[in-house]
Structures are given as structure tokens and as C-alpha cells.
Design a protein around this nucleic acid. Structure first.
Lengths: 238, 238
DNA sequence: CGCCATCTTGATGATCCTCAAAGGGTGTGG
DNA sequence: CCACACCCTTTGAGGATCATCAAGATGGCG
């Protein structure tokens, strides 16, 4: 579970490690940076999925975000507050110095964009953890994740059940059980454990919102359209 | 519970509402801004305590932070993602335009400082919610809050049990019970419901860290000194 | 003095975690 | 090519924690 770092930047293709704009590659499970490392750079995901992990002293972890192509992560000051690890094989672009002290005098805009992205990501995490039941958290997570992929098609969840559990503050058992129940209710279908097809956006949204009239064992018959979360969807990442 | 806004800026003392630097006063319970309002300004607390609240459609709320003198809040882009309310009577200073689009060309530094503060605050919230048991969350909350006040003296918790509960994802009952148990274990003492004296930092820290050897019904006899959280204390606010 | 809000405490029950085991997919070695 | 091992996922049974329901205590304020 607690993958220790060591061969951190094995996958780096370019050798000028201090140049912003360097392209880096990591294999699945490799660590981009560790919690507590000097926060010198931030990164943009070009290909693959990255997770950021907050490690607690009792060994358990809190995943603070998943980052997909176009997202940036690693905007910390001083030292990284969380580690970053490759969920799948990833290609990253090293973007620039950590903010706080000095910053590139040329462009403040990219910095601001990155900062706002980091804030959005943190808010999205709080927004998930603020929900009370396992079903609510999982429904919200699925909706938020599905937005990153083409609509109305099955999409690949790149992360493991363990990752989802540690993101939502649950166990893999509860995640698995709840997903199975979603399938039973015909809210989603699972082709493989990682291929998800959302079949009933409206009911899933109701669940995520805490309107627990979705306790019906079978498919809801509500005539709602795809009500995407109204005021505060906070866009998860970029 | 769900205080609706209406007489939002009753307490504003200066009339030039669009001037940065304006001093504002709010009475206990009044709303500084509401979730969804255009995020035109951010604020610095000069006196009192402010809470920021994320409202869910089922009516429950997630408090995303408490802000004390010197802290800033309201760094959102576009529209406020959470509302801000006066926990006590507060005096605020309106600091400047919301970031993202245009910003004062003169000083980027204050903006960066505010942003980093907002990120720290969000991380602190995640850090609390990432803990698993009620005792762990409450212990961590007490330690984080105590740092804002002179050490080794009783301090006033400005917020209600309900606020604490909604911040930690618990109920007021669990908060109250857990605090009572802390008193029973001699980890803290409660003069009044809001006057807290931390009597055993070390054991409280162990609890917060998830080292559950603190299951002893009576005061721990560990010879530890005041181990303030090591790597990632994220300073709650400013 | 009495009402009201807040806090505390108890009893009960639902949710979720823990313990346990089985199923399925993949890669490696025989 | 098959067998085995390993990891991830799923599912079940039991138990701990916390929410809910309910009632009583405390303190402030009219």
C-alpha cells in the first residue's frame, strides 16, 4: 500500500531536470514527488492520470485529487503537502517554479491559472467529503469523473477501488458494495470493474444531492432530464 | 439553521462600498456574502471569527473554515463557492477585487499571499475530514484551533457545537459526547462549554494522528513532550 | 420568573468497518 | 499450452461507531 519512493524520476526522458517545459514519463505506480519534497515545480498532465495523496502518520492516506490530461498539480509552496503518483502510465510537462517566493517575471497569468486550478481541485475534494453517506459520495464522484469523458458512453475509471476508497474516506469493500448496488438499481452498468456506463444521470444526481428518495430498489421513473449539478460544480482539476 | 441572507451588509460602516480597504462590521450570525454571489472582493478579519459554509441541496452544510484576526477569506473566482458568516461580532477589511480576471496592476504580492492562504485553509479542511473517527477529528480540530491562541491557557472556542459538527462532518451529539470523554480522560477541561483548556497535548496529538493507544480510560502516562504536528500543519487560515 | 436556545446525556438503530473467504484476470514458469 | 501464483475485486457475517430519537440540564434574555 504505502509505496515508498526511490526510483522517483526513472521515467524522465529529458535530462535537463531544471528546465521548465521538460517532458517526463512515469510508469503506473511511480511517484512524481513525495510529500515533504521541496516544491520546486508544478506539472501538467499530458497523458494518463495522476493522484495526489496526503499520508497520515497511522499509515492511511487521503487522496486529494485525480488529475487528467490538461490538469495541473503540484502547486504547493515550500514543500509539497501531498505526494503525487502515477495512477496509469503518464506523460507530464514540468511547468515552472513553485509559487510564493520568486516567480517568472514574464507571465503571471499561467501562475494564476494554475493556482485557481489547485483551489478548484481542493474545493472539489471538500465537496465530496462533505457528503454523508457512501452512496452520496460515490454518486457525486462518478458524476464528477464522468464529466471528464465523452458523455453517454462507457468510460474507463483509471483508478483502483482502493484509490476511490481513499479519496472518499471509505473502504474498498464499501465502494465495491455500493457500486454493485448502483448496478442493481440500474443507475450504472459495469462492463469490467473499470468500465463504467452511467445509465441514469438524474437519479445519480438526486443521490449525490442527498435527496434520498432514491431508496427505491429499482430504477427510478422520474421524468428528469440530465440535471447537471447547479451552482457549484467546481470542475475537478482544470 | 439555514440562515437566509437578506440584511447582508447591515453592518457596513463606510458607505463607499466599492473602495478596497473599507472597514465593515457584522453582528453575530450575519452573512458577509452568500454562496453564489459575484465574488468581487475578499476580506481580512480584523476582529472576531468568520466561518465559510458550503451548502448542500439537502439542507446540510459543510463549514470549510474558521477565520480569525489576520486571516483572509473570500478568494473565489467568478462567484463565491461558499457563503461567509459572522461567528461572533466581526470587523473586516475589504481587501480587493476577486482574482482571476483583472487584478490590481500594482501589487501582485498581496494577491499571492491571499491565494496561498486560501489553499492552506482548504488543505487544512481536507486534512481534518481525512481522519476517520470522531475522536481523531475532534482532537485534530482542537489542536489546530488552540494554535491560534496563547499556549497553555484556556481559550474561547468562538463557534457553537453545531459549527464544529458541520466542520468535522459529525453531529452535535457526537461532538458533545466526544468532548465529554476528553474531559473524562483528562485530555482537556471545559470551564464553560466554550472555554477549553488543553491539559495533555501529547495524548491529544496521538489521538489526532490515529495512534489509538489512547484507548486507556484514564490519563496517558506517556513521557512525550508537546509534539506539535510535524510536517503538514497547514496553519488554518493565514 | 419563565421562555428559548444551546448543550449534555441516554437508548436505539442504521451505516459502515473489520474479519473472512471466494471469484476473476493477468503474468510467469513449467 | 496449461498450471499456478498474485493481485484486485466482490460478497458475506459480525461488530463498532456514529446518527437518530428523545429527554433533561444549563444559561441568557425578555
Amino acid at each position: 500500500m504505502l509505496r515508498l519512493r526511490g526510483h522517483t524520476d526513472i521515467g524522465s526522458t529529458s535530462k535537463n531536470a531544471n528546465d521548465p517545459g521538460t517532458i517526463l514519463k512515469f510508469r503506473k505506480g511511480e511517484i512524481v514527488y513525495a510529500q515533504g519534497d521541496p516544491a520546486t515545480d508544478w506539472f501538467e498532465v499530458m497523458l494518463g492520470t495522476v493522484r495526489t495523496c496526503l499520508l497520515y502518520s497511522d499509515g492511511h492516506r487521503q487522496l486529494t485529487g485525480f488529475f487528467y490530461p490538461g490538469d495541473v498539480f503540484g502547486i504547493d509552496r515550500g514543500r509539497y503537502a501531498s505526494s503525487a503518483e502515477a495512477v496509469t502510465a503518464v506523460t507530464l510537462r514540468r511547468c515552472g517554479r513553485g509559487f510564493g517566493e520568486d516567480l517568472r517575471p514574464s507571465g503571471a497569468p499561467p501562475m494564476h491559472s494554475a493556482l485557481r486550478s489547485a483551489l478548484d481541485s481542493a474545493h472539489a475534494c471538500i465537496f465530496l467529503l462533505g457528503r454523508r453517506t457512501a452512496a452520496e459520495r460515490l454518486a457525486a464522484f462518478l458524476l464528477v469523473t464522468a464529466k471528464r469523458f465523452p458523455i453517454d458512453k462507457p468510460f474507463e475509471l483509471p483508478m483502483s477501488r482502493s484509490d476511490i476508497a481513499d479519496h472518499l474516506g471509505l473502504t474498498i469493500h464499501t465502494v465495491s458494495r455500493t457500486l454493485s448496488e448502483f448496478v442493481r438499481r440500474d443507475l450504472i452498468s459495469l462492463d469490467s470493474p473499470h468500465s463504467v456506463m452511467i445509465k441514469d444521470y438524474a437519479s445519480l444526481q438526486l443521490l449525490a444531492d442527498g435527496d434520498d428518495d432514491a431508496d427505491l430498489p429499482l430504477k427510478s421513473t422520474l421524468p428528469h432530464a440530465n440535471v447537471n449539478s447547479a451552482s457549484l460544480t467546481a470542475g475537478y482539476g482544470s
